[in-house]
């Protein structure tokens, strides 16, 4: 019923506006269309000027209102650089935005059509054009140079002592892998993937047997962290908004991103003033039906907390092969490896 009512009202409103429009056209024909246009020009000039004030006012108001909605202070070291360049760019573009929009609406107001007025024949001015080519070029150079300075720092090689974590995207969740006590991640091969081996671990490689596949991502505050990003089906994107990290997960082509977390989850709760704050890993590349829900919990903690957490994790090998006791397993895999070798 309400639907019909709404549709009815909308149709009625449209019909009324159309009716008014046709009547006003008849009136303007009687008055002369050119004369009407001249008369209207003052109205439009004021409307545009009014629009300009409402526009700027609206921007200022909405910025104040929604500032708290934006991403909080960066939780990573490099994110602060990104935020700084963002702010620099915002200052430059904000200035240009205000100057050009004001010029536009002011000119409309000032140079509106007036009876017997004449436009000024002014086809070009090379000096002026040269200046407004050079000045933007200078601004661009500044933005490019600062941007690239940090771009190389961010995308440069990770420090030697960085903690390495592998994250694999699949429809529709992330699979994180930490090396076990040996600090080395075992080999994997996509052709070995099945329900009991979700990233295709090669169990012939003993380095993989202590690898951990937890359900949460844990980072250590102040510890450079290098993520090896992979996908096992379609493209995904490893997105840590609070850390200003994004990198595509491409099937068959591992990518990397390294960063240094700055605040533990606890500290970030203070920074944001939100006692329930949690970091999240999102997927930022369209990947199918549940793209919008492909998330993973992320926690940043101190080294001690991290050690305690990872110490309590079972290796993936033991979770998927619960029956296998450590000793016989080793024998088994050796035999398997040998038979495979023999096969080749």
């Amino acid at each position: 019923m309400t639907t019909f009512l709404i549709v009815g009202i909308v149709v009625l409103l449209i019909a009324i506006i159309v009716r008014i429009a046709k009547t006003s056209e008849m009136v303007s024909v009687v008055k002369g269309t050119k004369e009407t246009m001249e008369e209207n020009s003052k109205t439009f000039a004021y409307i545009f000027l009014g629009f300009m004030f409402v526009f700027f006012g609206g921007i200022a108001w909405s910025l104040m209102k929604y500032k708290s909605h934006f991403l909080p202070e960066s939780a990573s070291v490099h994110g602060v650089w990104i935020d700084n360049i963002f702010n620099l760019t915002l200052a430059v573009t904000g200035l240009v935005f205000v100057l050009t929009q004001v010029a536009l609406f002011y000119f409309l107001f000032k140079y509106r059509q007036r009876k017997n007025a004449k436009a000024y024949y002014y086809p070009e001015n090379h000096k002026l054009e040269m200046w407004w080519t050079i000045i933007p070029a200078i601004f661009m150079t500044v933005l490019v140079v600062t941007g690239l300075f940090y771009w190389y720092k961010i995308t440069g090689p990770a420090p030697e002592d960085a903690m390495v974590i592998e994250v694999t995207g699949k429809q529709f969740n992330w699979i994180a892998r930490y090396p076990g006590k040996d600090g080395v991640m075992g080999k994997r091969d996509y052709s070995l993937i099945n329900d009991n081996n979700i990233i295709g671990m090669d169990w012939n490689d003993n380095a993989g047997k202590d690898d951990i596949i937890p359900t949460e991502l844990h980072f250590v505050k102040g510890k450079p962290t290098k993520i090896i990003i992979r996908s096992r089906d379609v493209m995904h994107n490893f997105d840590l908004p609070h850390f200003r990290v994004k990198m595509d997960a491409v099937p068959g082509i591992p990518t990397t991103f390294w960063f240094t977390p700055k605040y533990t989850t606890e500290e970030m709760r203070k920074v944001t003033g939100n006692p329930k704050f949690n970091y999240e890993l999102a997927c930022a590349q369209i990947c199918g039906q549940s793209h919008y829900a492909m998330k993973m919990a992320v926690k940043v903690e101190t080294q001690e907390e991290f050690n305690a957490w990872i110490g309590g994790q079972q290796s993936y090998y033991t979770t998927v092969m619960p029956a296998a006791a450590p000793a016989p397993v080793a024998v088994d895999t050796t035999a398997k490896a040998e038979s495979k070798k023999a096969g080749i």
Binding site: S41, A103, Q113, A119
Partner: peptide, 13 residues
């Protein structure tokens, strides 16, 4: 250049 085109025009809306 668009802005300069409007400058000192006799703008018809």
């Amino acid at each position: 250049n668009w802005l300069a085109t409007l400058w000192r025009g006799n703008i018809r809306f």
